[in-house]
Computed example of a mutant assay.
Amino acid sequence: MRIISGSFRGKRINAPANLPVRPTTDFAKEALFNVLNNQFYLDEISVLDLFSGIGSISLEFASRGSQRVVSVDQDTGCIKFLAETVKELKIEDRVSIHKYDVFQFLKRNTQGSFDVVFADPPFSFETEDYLKLIDLTIENEWLKQEGQMVVEHSKSHKFEGHPNFIQTRKYGNVNFSFFELKA
C-alpha cells in the first residue's frame, strides 16, 4: 500500500502480513479521492474513519492536509501499526486513534460531527449491518449537515432505498455508496 497524494505522496505502508486487513486498492482510493476533492477542500475538513484497519484512508486524508482525522478499529495489531505510522510521520496532532468496536463507538457521540465519515467494514457484513452502521452515524449526529458518509462494500449490497442515499460508484470490485443528511 502507498499514499497516493499530498505531503506523504509515494510513502509505502507495509503492514505485517498477520493483520486482518483488506486495504482499499490504490485504483479505488484514487478514484474516491477524486470524487471527494471535487466536493471538499480536503485541507479544511474533519474525517471519521470507521473500521480503519492499518489506516490507508486515514493516512491519505492526513497526507492531503485534513485538519482532524479520527480512526476507529477494534483490532489491537491494526491500532498498534497505525499508531506507529502516525508517530513516524509526526502527525499525532491531527490523527487520533481509538481501539473500539465501531457500533459501540457510534452509540455515543463524544467527538462531534465530521465533514466526511468513511466506513470500510468487513465484506462479510450483511446488508442489515451496513444499514445499522449508516443509521447510527446519522442518528447520533456524527455527520455534519453539508457532509457525506462513504461506505465501501461489495456489489452484492444495494442502498438505493435508504432515505439518505445519494449514489454508488463502482471501481473494479470495490463499490462506494455515498450518503448525506437530507434537509
Rank of each mutant, 00 (worst) to 15 (best):
R2C: 06
R2P: 04
R12S: 14
I13L: 15
A15I: 07
A17Q: 14
N18M: 05
T24Y: 01
T24M: 08
T25C: 04
T25H: 06
D26T: 04
D26A: 02
F27R: 10
A28G: 08
E30M: 03
F33W: 06
F33A: 01
N38G: 13
N38Q: 15
F40I: 03
Y41T: 12
L42H: 04
D49H: 03
L50W: 03
G53F: 00
I54D: 01
G55V: 05
S56M: 09
L59F: 13
E60K: 02
E60L: 04
E60H: 10
F61M: 09
R64F: 12
Q67N: 13
Q74R: 14
D75I: 00
G77C: 14
G77D: 15
C78G: 06
K80S: 14
L82R: 07
E84F: 07
D93G: 00
D93W: 11
S96E: 14
I97P: 01
Y100D: 13
Y100L: 04
N109K: 07
F114L: 11
D115T: 04
V116K: 00
A119I: 05
D120T: 04
F125W: 15
T127I: 12
E128Y: 10
D129E: 15
D129T: 03
D129K: 10
D129V: 01
L131N: 12
K132G: 05
K132H: 07
D135A: 08
N140D: 09
K144R: 13
K144W: 04
M149F: 13
M149E: 13
V151P: 02
E152N: 11
S154A: 15
F159Y: 14
F159Q: 03
H162R: 03
Q167M: 11
K170C: 05
K170D: 08
G172T: 11
G172Q: 10
F176M: 10
F178K: 00
E180A: 10
E180Q: 13
